[in-house]
Design a protein around this nucleic acid. Sequence first.
DNA 1: TCCCGATGAGACTATAGCGTCTCATTTCAT
DNA 2: ATGAAATGAGACGCTATAGTCTCATCGGGA
Lengths: 185, 185
Amino acid sequence: MALATRERILEAAGTALLRNPNATVDHIAAEARVGRATVFRHFGSRAGLLRALASRAIAETDRVTRQAAAHACTATDALRLVTRAVVGAGEFFRFLDSAAELQDEPEIAAAYRRQISELTDLVGAARREGFIRPEVPTAWVVASIDGLIWAASRAVGDGELGVVQAQDLVWETIANGLSTERTRT
Amino acid sequence: MALATRERILEAAGTALLRNPNATVDHIAAEARVGRATVFRHFGSRAGLLRALASRAIAETDRVTRQAAAHACTATDALRLVTRAVVGAGEFFRFLDSAAELQDEPEIAAAYRRQISELTDLVGAARREGFIRPEVPTAWVVASIDGLIWAASRAVGDGELGVVQAQDLVWETIANGLSTERTRT
DNA sequence: TCCCGATGAGACTATAGCGTCTCATTTCAT
DNA sequence: ATGAAATGAGACGCTATAGTCTCATCGGGA
């Protein structure tokens, strides 16, 4: 049952930390229906648990991202599929907003930078395909995609939108915005 | 010096909490170049300081929001001006992302709900003017505006974009998206 | 059936950070 | 110049929580 317990703790930590970024080990253990000592047996420390949870989030995001990119023929389509995939995997990384102490973990921070850099490359390639309006800086494209993914994940988590609906809306918004007509060139 | 000190502490708390959501009173006092006891004299407790900071953020957001709305003739234009104004005021509320314990303060939570509800009303009015694409749910319009404002504030804070540029880009993205052409009706 | 590894419960320690208090020093208004 | 108010420095106690350890219990496989 070792593996099942470990996974259950990670799952519980994700939901507990999402509710309260400062959730104690007691809270997490209770959420997982597990003794507090068991948490320490598996992860050594609270920081170790957070690291494991973040690694899981990064690995899962990488997995769905690469899988999505593999099915695309153009960079623009890859951008679309990757965006959809990340929105769908929102539950895995949403807790990261909260756990600020993870910024100090060099390994985690590096992985985050790498993912942003991969997204930046993808945006650059889509721009060369003519998909991105020339006057929009790449930094803003990346930042706004990030913001929209965040908004979509939250809306899904709050039950305001379904996953598929949110995936569609994010891409629609990226591609077309929200308005009926092109305004102000 | 009472007022200046108080304001200096609030300012320092904002930047310190932005760096680290769990910043201690010691950190904040050091940032403000003020004795720790002075912080307690002015705000009574750490929670009191956070409350005061959040109230200040809410009040400032209300102020710029109302001022912007007063200059608009249509709801669509009001939405544009309000969005710009809130992006410009980003420094005042960005720390809120971090301070999760504020969600428990009923007063703060209520004010946040009120601001979201006002934005929802504004979006509804803009929709009646034909600005919003009918197939996009209002909840997503509000959520994505929120996400883009958040992304813009962060980009400005990180020095990636200038304030005016960020304000323009947020609205461009809301109105037109990022792509060169309308894709997929 | 028996045994071993995993678990739960809980006692215990150590530490970080909050909040209080005191006293000397500084600053400001009159 | 003088007194009152504000401040800085730091000692002190208290509580919450991380982390360790022990022991009893449980459950599945030989």
